[in-house]
Computed example of a mutant assay.
Amino acid sequence: MKALTIKQPWSGAIVHQTKRVENRTWKLPASMHGARILIHAGAQRDRRASVYGPHLDVYSAIVGIATLTGCHWAEEDRPCSPWSDDNAYHWTLDDVIALPEPVPAKGRLGFWTPDEETVNAALRQETGVAW
Rank of each mutant, 00 (worst) to 15 (best):
L68G: 06
V58H: 14
C71D: 15
P79W: 05
A61G: 07
Y59E: 09
G53Q: 06
P114G: 09
S50P: 01
D115K: 00
E76D: 12
C80M: 09
H72F: 01
D85V: 07
L109P: 05
C71V: 06
V96M: 01
R78D: 08
H55L: 01
E75H: 00
V58Q: 12
P82H: 11
E76N: 13
F111R: 02
G110Q: 02
Y59W: 10
P79R: 01
A105E: 08
P82S: 05
T67A: 06
H90F: 01
V58I: 14
C80E: 05
R108P: 04
V51I: 15
H90N: 06
A49N: 07
T92G: 08
C80F: 00
R78W: 09
V51D: 08
W91S: 00
W112N: 04
H72L: 08
D77R: 13
F111K: 01
N87A: 13
E76L: 14
Y59Q: 06
V58F: 13
V103K: 10
Y89S: 14
D95S: 10
P104T: 03
L68Q: 06
T92F: 02
T92C: 08
E75Q: 01
K106Y: 01
V96Y: 05
H90P: 13
G110T: 01
I62E: 04
R78N: 11
C71H: 09
C71L: 04
C80I: 13
N87F: 13
G70C: 10
S50W: 05
S60D: 15
P104E: 11
Y52A: 11
V63L: 10
G70N: 10
A61T: 09
E101C: 15
K106C: 00
Y59G: 07
W83D: 14
L93K: 03
S81Y: 03
R108D: 10
S81T: 06
H90K: 11
T69G: 08
G64P: 07
I97S: 00
D86M: 10
F111Q: 02
C71F: 04
E76V: 12
H72M: 07
D95Q: 11
A61K: 03
A74K: 03
A74D: 13
